[in-house]
Structure formats: C-alpha cells, structure tokens
Nucleic acid binder design. Structure first.
Lengths: 209, 209
DNA sequence: TAAGTGTACGTGGTCTGACCACTAAAAGGG
DNA sequence: CCCTTTTAGTGGTCAGACCACGTACACTTA
C-alpha cells in the first residue's frame, strides 16, 4: 500500500511516477480520463504533496498528462506531444546534427515509399493521384500523405519529429515541385522500386548512390 | 531580470524551463557542466524553490539534466535518455503497434546498412570482421556496432528507442546466428547493395519483397 | 415553476520554512 | 605533511498556508 520511507537511491517522485503508471494500467484509464487529485495521491501514497507535484509536472512536460486548474488532472492523448520542441532546441547544436536530421528524414521517406510498394494498395494511390491534381499543397503535405499511406504509426511519429527538428534548425523549407510528385506516384503505381527511388532522388536532387 | 508575477496562463515552472534553456544557451553550457543551485535559481528568478524543483524534476525525467545530492545539478549527455521506457509502456498497446515496432526496427537496420555502404569505410568493416571472430556477442550487440558504423546519431537514438520498445513489448529476443553476421559484413565489404539486403533478409528470415 | 445568482467546496498553483542526508572543501590536530 | 574533524552548501522531502479558478448545489427572485 505505502512505499518505503527513503528507499535507498530512488527518489520519491520517481516512485510516484511508477505508481501512477501501474495505477493507470490496472484501472484501464484512457486519454481524457481523470486521475486522482494531488491531495488524494498524497494520502494514498503517504508522501508529501510537493513530491506528487514533481511527478505530475514531469509527466506534464512529457505530454503524458494535462492539468486544468480547478478541475483536475487528466490523461492525455499521447499522439500529440510537444515534447519534441523541447528536445529539439536542447539537443541539436552542431552541424553534424543538422546533416543527420536531413539524412534521416530522407531515408525515412524512402522507407515509407518502399512500404507503400509492398502494401500495393492501388486504390489509395489512385486517390492520391486525384488529390495531386485537385489540391494546392506543400511538400510537407505531400509527404504526410505518403507517410500515412505507408500505414506505420511509428514512422509517422518519427517523421513528424524529424520535421519539427528540421523547422527548429531553420533549414530551408522544401519547395513544392509538382512534376516530381506525379512521377513518384506514377512510379508507385508501376510497382518498380528502382523507378520510385529514382523519382525521389530527382525530387530531392540527390545522386542515386 | 525577474518574471511577471502571475503571467496569465503560463505556469511558473514552464517559465523556469524557458529561462534555464536560454541560460544554458547564453553561457554556452555543455554536458557535464554545473547549473546554479536550486536556492540560487529561486533568488535569481524571484520564484519559490518548489517551482524551481518542479522544473528541474521535469527536465530530469526527460534526461536533460542530472542531479547529485550534496553536489548539485548538471547538464547531461543527451545521448542517453531513459525517457523511452516511460513513453514505451505508456503508449504502445494494440497488436498493430507491435507489428509497427518490428517493421520499423528492421527498416532502420536496413537503412543503416545502406548508409554503411555509402560511407564505404573499409577499415572499420575489417575491424568489425575481426570483432566477430574474437567475441561473444548478441544480436543486439552486433547491430549496435552496425548502427554506430552508420554514423548517424539520430538513427542511433531511434534504433535504441525501438529496441527498448521491443523489449517492453516482450517480443522474442533475436537469437544469435553467426554465419549470417559474417555474410552481412562480407557483403558490405563487397559493396553490392543487393547482396547486403539479401544477407539481412536471410538473417531475419524475411522474403526479399 | 423556471431562470438566474451566489456561495461553498474541491482543484491545481505557488510560496515559505523547516528538517534530513549527503558531499566536498576548509579548518584543525597529529 | 597527512589525516581527521568540522562546516557550509547542496539536493530531497514534508507540512502548512494562501491564492485563483471551476463546478455544483442551494437559494433567491421573477
């Protein structure tokens, strides 16, 4: 029920994070659900309120919970994490990092193109082709479509993070370049990996090596 | 110098995070450097110590700083963040997620193999070959070497995260399979992408599609 | 009855002051 | 000179006190 008083080495707020996690798991709490109030957590866990708050603030900065003054603390939809901006401005400094961001973004985009090839969902590609003709869009928006078609949520997250990094580093925005988008989609429909890669390289002005 | 007393909407601990960030930037503080003590930050920013602690605890859970009792608070080497275990057990539930983890891990590993091909650093590959013969190692350890050779810090982070996810989901550990490791390194030395991919597919027991 | 209003309670947000445990540097003694 | 002791500084934690805000319920009023 209660925790060790001074559990050697471990800090109280970390224990509370742990407890919260198992509490959420056991009770099957989902995004939007309310968790016990700070004062109730104090009593239940036999700790001071400041320690509870340290745990909650940490989880809040991680984007895992949301607090509303006068109402309470709620579990958040993890998909939207602002955590990235933080890490971005903290972590990335040197030029090697910049280069890594660009390289990684490109490779992830290539992976998604390969995934789409493997999924081979013609109808979705046809839809995308229509969308190309009927819409104004940016390079980002095009690739968001691509990433979505790849149907891998982790890649979606990773790409979003990289894109945020990209912006945070003030790298030049990709400029729209319609013919290449058509070429990529066409190549995807053709089903030939080499063609797809070549179209992508052209768009990004890369050598195909 | 000091902040607004109740700055509407914004919470004090978030302001402190901001201040710390610019403080680190201005003073050019690097991993290992010490930041001002909690009590000094209170005075400098005209806030309570509990607020300062909320900010520091949050940054600590993010893995951005490290505190040592009796010594102080230090900027941390961002490369190692335990943040992931947290997110992992919080975020991933359904079976689609599991599938995504596996798929993404494999694709990242493939990307790194391609990067190594592009870098074409023969000496490092020879060293790796020696290591293979002289060491006991696990599948993880082998691919850590691979990812390192790819020399892209972001991929290293992403792969580590995915590996943690993999463990958190209790997916079956990759088993060591020596001949395939040799084949991969040999193919890398050969410089033929198709061979490299084929070796990897064999190791992971995947079709080459 | 129905609509509006106001009060009380619960919640998060913040500050203060008090300890404790631990570390490292300064002071002291051999 | 070295070793011990002291001391000051640091993070870790708790308790209590306010404040600001939102909600719900009881009360008034039309």
């Amino acid at each position: 029920m209660s925790m060790e008083p001074v559990e050697r080495g471990s800090k109280v707020y970390l224990e509370i994070v742990k407890q919260l996690r198992s509490m959420i798991e056991q009770d099957g709490l989902k995004p939007g659900d309310k968790i016990p109030s700070e004062r109730e957590l104090c009593e239940r866990l036999n700790v001071g309120r400041s320690s509870v708050r340290e745990a909650l603030r940490a989880l809040e900065l991680l984007g895992l919970i949301e607090t509303r003054r006068g109402e309470g603390t709620f579990i958040r939809d993890f998909r939207s994490n602002q955590l990235v901006q933080l890490l971005g401005t903290f972590v990335l400094q040197d030029s090697k990092a910049k280069q890594d961001v660009i390289e990684t973004k490109y490779l992830i985009e290539l992976d998604c193109l390969r995934l789409i090839l493997r999924r081979n969902n013609v109808k979705q590609l046809e839809d995308l082709k229509e969308w190309l003709e009927s819409c104004e869009f940016t390079d980002d928006q095009f690739f968001i479509k691509i990433i979505e078609l790849a149907d891998n949520h982790l890649f979606y997250r990773i790409w979003s993070i990289l894109n945020d990094y990209y912006d945070a580093l003030k790298l030049p925005k990709m400029e729209r370049n319609d013919p290449f988008y058509f070429a990529i989609v066409q190549a995807l429909l053709g089903g030939n990996e080499a063609d797809v890669l070549q179209s992508y390289y052209s768009l990004r002005k890369l050598s195909n090596a």
